[in-house]
Simulated assay, not measured.
Amino acid sequence: MDCLFCSIIKGEVPSDCIYEDELVYAFNDIDKQAPVHFLIVPKKHIDSTDDLEEEDADLIGHVFLVAKKLARELGVTNGYRIVNNCKEDGGQTVNHIHFHVLAKRQLNWPPG
C-alpha cells in the first residue's frame, strides 16, 4: 500500500507533528486554510468514511476528543470546524480517513 498518511505516521515523510498517541497522529496542514489548520489522522488505515465499521466507533470518538484537546491547547476560544471529506466528489484527495480542524477566523457557510 502506498499511502501518504501512513508514510507520515511512520516518520518516512516529514510533518509538523503536534500530537500523537496510540490511536491518532495530528499535524499542521501544509496548505493552511485558516490561522489554525491541522489534520487528525487515525493510525489505523481506513480509506474513507464509507469504509468505517462498527468496530471503529471508539476510534472516531477519540478523534473528536483529540480535536477538542488540541483546540484548547492552541488557544481556540471562539469555535472551530472539523471537516471530513469522503471520496472524490466530497473532496477527499488522500485515501486515508482524516479530519481537518480549522479555527481562528470566521468560517462561512456553506463551504465551497
Rank of each mutant, 00 (worst) to 15 (best):
R105Y: 00
H62N: 14
R81H: 04
L74S: 00
K68P: 00
F64L: 15
L102R: 02
H37V: 08
S48C: 13
E88K: 07
K32Y: 01
T49L: 15
Y80C: 02
Y80G: 01
E53R: 15
I40S: 03
V76D: 01
T93H: 09
F38S: 03
A34V: 03
H37N: 11
S48I: 04
F38T: 02
N95P: 02
A26L: 11
R105P: 03
L52P: 09
I60L: 07
I30Y: 13
L65W: 07
V36A: 06
D58M: 13
Q106F: 11
K68A: 03
F99Y: 11
G91I: 04
T93N: 11
Q92I: 00
T49E: 08
A34C: 03
L23K: 15
D56K: 07
E20W: 08
K104M: 13
V63P: 01
H37K: 13
R105H: 09
N84V: 08
L39K: 09
L65P: 00
L52I: 13
H62C: 09
D50R: 14
A67K: 03
I82L: 12
H100S: 04
D56W: 00
I40V: 09
R105M: 12
L65Q: 15
N85V: 05
Y25C: 10
L102N: 01
Y25N: 10
D21I: 05
I60W: 03
T93R: 08
L107P: 11
T49A: 14
Q106D: 10
G90R: 06
S48T: 06
R105N: 08
N108E: 15
G79I: 11
V101T: 07
L70S: 06
T49Q: 10
L70H: 05
H96P: 12
V83W: 04
C17M: 14
R81W: 12
L70E: 04
D16H: 03
N28Q: 15
P42M: 10
C17W: 01
K44D: 04
G90L: 10
A26K: 08
T93D: 02
D31I: 06
V83K: 01
H96G: 04
L39N: 00
L39D: 07
D31H: 14
Y19D: 05
A57N: 13
V83H: 02
G75F: 10
K87I: 06
I60A: 07
G90H: 12
T77R: 14
D47H: 05
V94Q: 02
I18W: 08
D89W: 05
I30M: 12
I30W: 02
N78P: 01
H98D: 09
E55K: 15
V76R: 06
I82T: 07
V83I: 13
G90V: 06
D50G: 10
F64A: 10
F27E: 07
H100T: 00
D29E: 12
A103N: 11
V76I: 14
R81I: 09
L23I: 09
A71H: 02
V41T: 03
D58K: 14
K104F: 02
E53I: 06
A57L: 15
E54V: 12
N95D: 09
V94A: 12
H45M: 10
T77I: 09
A34I: 07
V63H: 06
P35D: 05
I46C: 07
T77H: 04
V41F: 11
K44W: 01
L65S: 10
R72I: 03
D16I: 13
A103I: 02
H98G: 06
K43P: 07
G79L: 08
D56Q: 11
D21T: 13
A67R: 04
K43H: 00
V36N: 04
F99H: 04
G75W: 10
